[in-house]
Amino acid sequence: MFLLKNTYFLLIIRIILSIVFIISGIEKIANPSEFAQSIENYRLLPIFSINIFAIFLPWLELIAGMLLLFGIKIRENSMLITSLMMLFTTAVIIAIFRNLDIDCGCFGTLAAQKVGFRKVLENSVLICIGFILLFSKVQSSIELKN
């Protein structure tokens, strides 16, 4: 419990989560066709809608990651990032149960990773970090006025 209130611990995990999403976002923005193919591999969305998600999701990851890194609206960005991670992890779990032999599409072409329980475990750690930031009494460095 001490760790959850420790400013430095919260700062480190915030940086880790931010960097993961920034790198992920940049890679997918640089290779939208590969990311679109990764989304199609999961066979969860209608074909016609896949490119739309491939176009805007990486930007959402990038912007949320950068705002989180700079300590802006920490709770909101933590909630957004955690929600995205839960969504991605759900897709990975569904792919596992459907025995899909596919790349997870997590970091675009930077690091090929197949869907599997290892990926679920990695994502679960990031989800935990997101929840810690969401429920901790962390102060944003800049609070934008409503």
Binding site: I55, P58, W59, L67, K73, E76
Partner: peptide, 16 residues
């Protein structure tokens, strides 16, 4: 602030 989250999504769509 859910309005902020919605704004972020809209900005992401426009930028994308």
């Amino acid at each position: 602030n859910f309005r902020f989250i919605f704004l972020l999504i809209v900005i992401s769509i426009l930028l994308g």
